[in-house]
Simulated assay, not measured.
Amino acid sequence: MIKNLYFKFLLTVLLSLFSCTETGDIIDNGYQNNAQENYTSPYMGKWVGTYSGNAIDGTLILNVSKSGSIEVKRGGNGTMDEVYYTSLQGSGGALNPAPSPKGFILYGSLHTKSGTWNFQHWSGSWSVAKQ
């Protein structure tokens, strides 16, 4: 009888621990989802500048969304050659160095408003200012 009572007590304690963990996870996930929905990137807005380097140069337009995703427009010789999408990494405004479909890659930060770029066998620097 005591063994049976001890077993029921132990089972009740274990089940309550598991149910608390699941409830805590649900609350934590709800809080995280709410925080993501309310987040506004401090870099949100339009950034305009230039890139230059080994034999090529042009214009950059970075449109940063509320969530920190970035639409990159790259142009040269008066035309916009390419539009692609990337994002910010962390809170320091670092650009995710994701290559465009053509292979153009921006490295750097919106905090410093500058960085470097690579494209095929060319490279150089870029800078932008918030509009």
Rank of each mutant, 00 (worst) to 15 (best):
W47G: 05
M80K: 04
S65H: 12
S67M: 11
M44W: 01
T50V: 09
Y51H: 06
Y43C: 13
K66E: 14
K46W: 05
S41R: 02
K46E: 08
T86L: 10
T21L: 04
T40P: 04
E22Q: 13
I61F: 10
L62V: 02
S65Q: 09
V64L: 14
N63D: 15
V72D: 11
I26F: 04
Y43E: 11
I26S: 01
G68S: 15
D81S: 11
V72W: 11
N33V: 13
Q89S: 14
E37V: 14
Y39N: 06
Q32L: 14
G53M: 10
W47T: 09
A55F: 08
L62Q: 06
G75S: 10
E82P: 00
D25L: 13
R74M: 00
V72H: 06
S67V: 11
N29Q: 08
V83P: 01
I26D: 01
S52Y: 07
G53A: 08
K73A: 08
N29S: 11
P42D: 00
K73E: 14
L62P: 07
N63V: 14
S65L: 13
Q36N: 12
Y39S: 12
D28S: 15
D28A: 15
I61L: 14
Q32R: 13
E22A: 13
A55I: 07
N33M: 13
C20T: 05
V48Y: 05
T59V: 15
K73R: 15
N54K: 07
G58V: 00
E22N: 09
A55P: 00
A35K: 08
G76K: 06
I56T: 08
W47I: 07
S69K: 15
M44F: 02
Y43A: 02
Q36M: 10
Y31W: 02
D81L: 10
W47M: 14
C20I: 06
N38E: 11
P42W: 00
Q89H: 11
S52F: 09
T50Q: 10
T23Q: 12
S65M: 04
V83Q: 00
G75W: 04
E37G: 13
L62T: 08
T40S: 04
N29E: 07
P42E: 01
N33A: 15
V64S: 03
V72M: 13
G75I: 10
G45D: 02
T21Q: 11
G30C: 01
N38D: 12
L60S: 10
E37M: 12
G58I: 00
T86P: 08
G75A: 11
G53L: 04
